[in-house]
Simulated assay, not measured.
Amino acid sequence: MSRTDIRNHPKFENVYISGPLENAKMYTKNLTPGQNVYGEKLVEYKGIEFREWDPYRSKLAALISENPITNFLSPDAKFLYLGAGSGTTISHLSDIAENGLIYGVEFAERSIRQLIQNTSNRKNIIPILGDARFPESYAKSIYTGIDCIYQDVAQPNQAHIAIANSNYYLKKEGMAIVALKSQSIDSVSKPEKVYKNEKEILEAGGYKLVESINIHKYAANHLILIIKRNIT
């Protein structure tokens, strides 16, 4: 471990930074001290252990690094994470939502095994083997309303997946964060055209765009959309 000066993020609770805000390193407070998940650096400051959170390895960290207007994180929130992978980003979300709950849906059997192994000591993560295209298929594993959906799936129908899961699980005032990878949707068309089409699908499905954040400098051909139900 190394020592550095760490302070609260000015907007997001349970997210921490060091250095100047415009070029800050980011951290979360380790919910399981002494253990890292994917080889991330552990840093001790004033008797508290933090895990370094690299925006080049996590699209959620990249989103926060771009200073969005919307505050979508809460220590008590219930999250549905679509495309949980082997545990990189969801473990940091676990640190943040220390009093909440995260349902992590992953389609690949190898990844879900790694996720279970990597997060077995994190009691606020519930790994679910499931296909995000069919939200009803894992309904028996989700027993609370969802405040926020975080979606990072490499599927061609990403907007439709977001709509289906939001319709099924999201609370009336909840929001969804959709990490669009244009190459997974359409590898021929220009990313801007792909993003425009996905936005139109979401709007036609009854969702309004709250914010659109370009994270290309961290993840090529990625745009993150924050959406809410269009309640009239």
Score class of each variant (00 low, 15 high):
Y150C: 03
A162H: 02
Y195S: 00
Q114D: 13
Y195D: 00
N167R: 12
S184Q: 08
I126M: 09
K208C: 13
E192G: 04
A176M: 14
A159W: 00
K208M: 15
I149V: 13
A154L: 05
Y138E: 02
K199L: 06
L115P: 02
N121Y: 07
L115M: 13
K172S: 14
G206C: 07
G205Y: 10
M175R: 15
N118G: 01
C148W: 01
A154N: 10
G174S: 10
K199T: 10
R133Y: 05
A162L: 11
L115S: 02
A159E: 02
V210C: 14
A154Q: 08
K190M: 07
I128T: 03
Q183S: 15
S166Q: 09
Y150D: 01
K123Q: 12
I163G: 03
A176L: 09
G174K: 05
R133C: 03
D131Q: 06
A179L: 07
N165Q: 06
P135L: 09
Y168P: 01
Q183H: 15
K123A: 14
E200M: 07
K190E: 14
Y143I: 15
Q117I: 10
V194A: 04
L170T: 10
F134C: 05
A139N: 08
K140I: 12
I112N: 01
S212A: 13
G174L: 07
I185P: 00
M175W: 06
Q183L: 12
A139T: 09
L129G: 05
V178E: 00
T119P: 02
Q151K: 06
A159C: 05
K208G: 12
I201A: 02
Y143F: 13
A204G: 12
I161N: 02
S184L: 11
Q151F: 04
K181W: 04
N124L: 11
C148R: 08
Q151V: 11
I126F: 12
H160A: 14
S184A: 12
I126P: 00
D152S: 08
E198P: 01
V210W: 06
I185R: 03
R113F: 06
N124Q: 09
V194D: 01
V188K: 13
I116P: 02
Q155V: 10
Q183V: 07
A159G: 05
E136L: 14
Q114G: 08
S187K: 14
S120P: 06
K171G: 10
I128C: 04
E211L: 08
K171R: 13
Q114S: 13
Y195E: 02
L115T: 05
A159M: 04
Y143W: 13
I125E: 00
E200A: 10
D152C: 08
A176N: 11
Q158N: 07
P135H: 13
N167W: 11
G205M: 02
I146P: 00
R113P: 08
I112R: 00
G206M: 05
K196Q: 15
N121K: 11
L129P: 03
A164T: 06
E198S: 10
A176F: 11
P156N: 10
G205W: 10
